[in-house]
Nucleic acid binder design. Structure first.
Length: 115
DNA sequence: AAGCTGACTATGG
DNA sequence: GCCATAGCCAGCT
């Protein structure tokens, strides 16, 4: 997907996240090759707010497993609601057993491909 | 065109 | 172990 813009690639990866799984901005950034520039991932997701194929941005949290992006959702509680609906447990705005449900694209997808 | 911004992360004190 | 600082890079004003 060399033609895809940076955020398009971010969307593609985020869509590959299995239900009930979560990942961090850094993991996605690393997979995209942008290193630790996780800000770009979050910024990209900010743009995904009205994308046609829904982008499960709620499955993307910071490295601490906290729902830092929830404030940017249509409703601040939507992210938590969605995660809970996926079988996860949200405690104090953070994912319980975050590492347990962690999904690393670089590890799972490796370089197979996205989208 | 130049500078600021940002849903982060790593490192140092 | 918590607070402060810096690096990150693509898009927007």
């Amino acid at each position: 997907m060399p033609d895809a813009s940076f955020y398009q690639r971010v969307y593609a990866v985020v869509r590959q996240i299995p239900k009930g799984k979560v990942t961090s901005y850094g993991a996605i950034a690393k997979y995209l090759g942008t290193g630790m520039s996780s800000r770009m991932v979050g910024w990209a997701l900010n743009n995904c707010n009205g994308e046609d194929p829904f982008v499960p941005a709620h499955r993307v949290v910071n490295r601490n497993g906290l729902l830092t992006g929830s404030h940017h959702f249509p409703t601040p509680t939507l992210m938590e609601e969605l995660l809970t609906a996926e079988g996860l447990t949200v405690v104090d705005n953070g994912i319980k057993d975050f590492q347990k449900h962690f999904w690393d694209p670089a590890k799972e997808l490796k370089q197979d491909e996205i989208d």
